[in-house]
Each structure stands twice: as C-alpha cells, then as structure tokens.
Amino acid sequence: MASLTETFAAAVELLVSGDEALWTIIGVSFRVSFTALLLAIIPATLIGFALAYWRFPGRWLLLSLTHTLMAVPTVVVGLILFMLLSRAGPLGDWRLLFTQDAMIVGQFLLCLPLLVSMSHSAFQGADKRAWETAKMLGANPLRCLWVLMLEVRYALYACFIAAFARIIAEVGCAMMVGGNILNYTRSITTAIALETLKGEYAQGVALGLVLFILAMVLNVGMGLLRGKGQLASR
C-alpha cells in the first residue's frame, strides 16, 4: 500500500523539520513523565529498601499490594483519579483535573508500585556486606543506604528506566485526567490516539517513532551501562 510509505515519509519529515506542534507535544510528555518519575524515585526507593531490610508486621501484605497495584490498568488509575479530582469529587476544590499536574499525579501513582517492587528486588539481591561494611566503618544510616544503592545501581537504573517507559507510554490515565488539551495536556500517546481517530496518521506515526527511538536509546544506554558494570566487577 503506497500510503503506508507515504505516511512514514511524512512522519519523518515532520520530525526532522522541527514541526512546532509536534515538538510541543513531545515536550509535554517528557516534562510530565520526568517530573512524575523524579517525584516517585525517592519515596519508592526508600519503601523498596524498607521492604527488603526491615521485617515489620504487614510487610508481606504491603508487598502483595505492590504487586497487585502493578497489574492495575492505567485507565482504572485514571478513573479513580478522575472521580477524586472532578468538581463533584472530594478533591474537586484543588481544580487539578485536566491540567499537567493531574497527569503528573496519575503517572506518579502508576510508576510508584513498579519502582517499589523493582527496587525491592534490587535491594534484596544486594550484597549485604556493602551495608554492613559501611556501618562497621562508622557511616551514618543515610550513607550506608547510599553505599547499598551504589552496589545495586544497575538494577536501580533498570528499575527507573522501566518505570519511565511505563509512564511515558501509557495513554489511559493521561487521556482521562489530562484531557488531551492542545499545548497543555496533549502528550505523545494521547496525541497518537487522537490523530488515529482523525484519520491523520502521519503525526501519529511520527510520535510513535519518537517513542520507539526513546525506547531504543534507553535500552542501548542500559546495555552500555551494564557492559561497563561487568567490566568493572571482573
């Protein structure tokens, strides 16, 4: 089908020519997802660490809950958030619905369980001696944690990348609480959904390419980091 190649050519041209509308959308996506990830990393890592090192009552329950939350579809998170933030909802006075902040909150909630679960596994697989040695050498708890995080840094990077990939590629929640408003809350994925609906495939394909390239860059980057890690631990 000729139109397939035509669409691809048009998509690449849009990207290369620096089409403003297109890059605004990409900007919104990155701003929202990066902010959500940055906000989530610290609490999630701490929770993941606590789950791995601290046998407290309810720990098992919290772990199961984390795994369950990971499987919750993004639209469900979106729906719950929508109901909370709606003018009729309990948090309606915050007037957050259909803003980037609402999208950030949604993506924060989406990546938190994933980050907790993966950082928990990372810490669980860590060499305990790292923490113990730091402690024996008089480091304060924060510094011990830092040493431990350095020890499992590759697993943590992988965890952050997976979380970022999940939220930048999700459409359900972003559409619901963001509202796909041009120049405000239109992200890569909601734009693709819209362009397909309009029958305008070129922009959709261009945005899809961005996600594809992003995934590739992240994975290649991860591979390089891992390679370096192997070299260092030989």
């Binding site: 113990e132 024996m136 050498l137 008089g138």
Partner: peptide, 28 residues
Amino acid sequence: QRICYLHQTPYLFAGSVERNLNFVIRSL
C-alpha cells in the same frame, strides 16, 4: 566505644584504594 567486624571476604567499595580509605575518614 567502637566495635568493628571484618568479614572473612571483605567488601570493598567501588573506586580506588584511596577512595575506600577516604570513606572511613569522612565517617569520622
């Protein structure tokens, strides 16, 4: 009073020998 236990197989921090030693100094 400080107790220090040394593992049978020691854990060394990533980086140089000096960095390992500086870790202790910064803990003091």
